[in-house]
Amino acid sequence: MNTAWLFVIVAALLFGIGVYGLIIAGHLLRKLFAINIMGNAIFILMVAASGSLDGSPDALPQALVLTGIVIAVSATAFALALMVRLYQLTGKATLQDDEDADD
């Protein structure tokens, strides 16, 4: 068991938590938390699985993840704007299907 294996396991657990949170979350902000956690899990996976933890540094996955972090923030910012707008228009920050599912 070395560092790479450890972080792959952590990534898998984080991804599972993210998927679970995405499904059970009612509030859209919680869904955003979940999506961001899933994204972070994949970022960890990319770097951990690239073999750069075992000595030979590999700049490619790190550069990819750096781009990914910025894209994730951009998408989150837009999603937050959509959520606030939805709340303004309907008074709810949940999706229609979710309310039906609760019945």
């Binding site: 294996w5 792959v8 396991i9 898998a12 599972g16 998927v19 499904i23 899990a41 951990a48 690239s50």
Partner: peptide, 16 residues
């Protein structure tokens, strides 16, 4: 969620 986590673990451990 468990399936998704398992998938990530398999991909990651396979790559490592």
């Amino acid at each position: 969620a468990a399936l998704a986590a398992g998938l990530v673990a398999v991909i990651g451990l396979g790559a490592v």
